[in-house]
Structures are given as structure tokens and as C-alpha cells.
Amino acid sequence: MSRFAVFAAPGLLAYFALVLVPIGIAIAYSLTNKDPFNPPTRWVGLDNLTSLPSDDEFLQALKNTTVIAGIVTLVTNAGGLALAVLLDRRGWFYNALRSVFFIPVVLSAVVVSVIWQTILVDDGLLNSMLRQLGMGNPPGWLSDPSLALYTVSWVIAWQGLGFCVVVYLAGLQSIPKELYEAAAIDGCGPVMRFCHVTWPMLAPAVTINTVMSLIGGFKAYDQVQVLTNGGPGPGTTSTLAFQVIQTAFTGNHIGYASAMAAVMLAMVATISVIALRLLQKREVSS
């Protein structure tokens, strides 16, 4: 027990100091009108929290965040599974492709966003190519309010795709070949083998990727800041994380921003736990 404590203590202390303490401070601030430029700080209780349901900017950010999280979860899982099935081969070529798909995961979200911004702006690479192909008025991927949110979602999903590919590949390579052989002997074709062997055996990988994608979608900030700065228009692509940062460091309303952050933390934790429980039940049944 003493050896365990010695090895665990540094990690636990770091987790306590860098995660639990800031969360506690944020929750405490959410119960005040904290504003560093307008002292003194007063206790307001639950006033900040009760104001959120009538805050149009917060509700718009909540809606946008939900849309992004849903798109990211669907795209990364569907695309990641499809690519993993295609890359589940032996050879240097497929190994190289795996590395290529994983590169965006290790890059900074800011770097990825800057690269995509040069591609997606109105006079960027993509629209220049579309004009070369004869499209006179190509879409405003980042300037059109009806497209911007989906464009941001695509960039976030694109960066997270490689992680899902690697997890699904690990799941595919852990499936015993005997199961496929037995299914083939029973007359199952490729589609039936996927439905009755591959998909059930990938249940743990589906759980990991779904929960991680949901969390990644709900905490989206860097891509929004770089690509659209919350626009175009008022709050078109603003997310909860973006709204928290803007309220705290642009508006200097630390207490109100902390209340938003507390709600965001509770939402992400609740949704993650529910998704984890439901998906783990599928693992058992599979």
C-alpha cells in the first residue's frame, strides 16, 4: 500500500491542483458577481445560474455546441470505421496511410484551423478550384451564416478522424480470425460477416470513440476562435466554451462566465456518463 501511495501521489497531487482546485474555484466564482475591474465582489447565490435560461446568447451557444457535438460524433465514427476497414491490411503502403490519417490528431487545433482557413475563405484554395471548374459563385464556407457552423464542425471532425481510425483498427485486429472463418463456412457473405462478427466485436471501440467524440465536440473552442470568431453574424458559430471565454476575458464577467462553465461541465459529465452506460450495456449484450 505504501509503494502504491508513493507512485500515485505525484499524479494525484497534480490532478488535485490542476483539475479539482480550478473546478472548485470556478464553482465558487459562479455564486458571485466577480469582476476584476468592478470591485467589490458580492455573493449573488444562484442568480447567475437562473439567468442563463433567459440569455439568448447562451442558448444559441448551447444549440450550436449540440449541433457540433452531434456532427463530430457521427462523422468521426462513421468515417473512422469505414477507413479502418479499408486500412485493415498488411504492407508498408497501408502502414504509411495509417500514419497520414493520424497526423492531424497530433497537430495543434490552432495549426489545423489556420490551414483550413486558408483553404475555406472566400478567395481560398477551395473556391479558387471551384471557379476554375466553372462555378461562378462558390459557397462562402466561413462567411455564409447557413454554412459556417457545418464548416467548423467538419474541421473538428476531420482532425479527430485519425484517432477513431486507430481505435477501430486496434479493435479490428483483435478480432479472432476463426470467427470469420466460421461465419464463412456458415455461408455468410462480407455484409453478414460485418453485421454478425465485426460490428458486435467492435463494441468497446465504439464506446471509446463515441464518448471521446462527444467530449471533443462539446468543448470545441480553438477552431471557432480561429475560423470564424463566433461569426459570421451574432453568435452564428459561438459554442459554450467560446461564450465562456468571451464573457470572462472580453466582458470581464468572471462570475457569470463561471456559471456557464459549471453548466457546461455538468452537461458534458452527464451526457458522457449516460453514453458510457448505454454503450457498455451493448458491450455486455454483444
Rank of each mutant, 00 (worst) to 15 (best):
A84H: 03
A84L: 04
A84W: 00
L86F: 03
L87F: 02
L87G: 00
L87N: 02
D88H: 06
R90A: 09
R90G: 04
G91Y: 01
W92V: 08
Y94A: 09
Y94E: 08
Y94P: 05
N95G: 02
A96L: 13
R98K: 15
R98F: 04
S99W: 04
F101P: 04
F101A: 04
F102Y: 15
F102Q: 02
I103M: 15
I103P: 02
V105K: 09
V106D: 12
V106A: 14
L107A: 12
S108Y: 00
A109Q: 05
A109H: 07
V110K: 12
V110A: 11
V110E: 08
V110H: 07
V111I: 15
V112N: 11
S113R: 10
V114T: 04
Q117N: 11
I119W: 08
L120C: 08
L120Q: 11
V121R: 15
V121T: 05
N127L: 10
L130V: 11
R131P: 08
Q132T: 10
Q132K: 11
L133N: 02
M135D: 00
M135P: 00
N137H: 14
N137V: 14
P138I: 15
P138D: 10
G140P: 12
L142E: 06
L142T: 09
L142D: 04
P145V: 15
L147H: 02
L147R: 06
L147Q: 08
L147K: 08
A148S: 11
A148L: 07
A148C: 05
L149P: 03
V152W: 12
V152Y: 12
V152N: 03
V155D: 08
I156A: 05
A157E: 10
W158F: 15
W158C: 02
W158K: 11
Q159H: 01
G160Q: 15
G160D: 08
F163Q: 12
F163W: 15
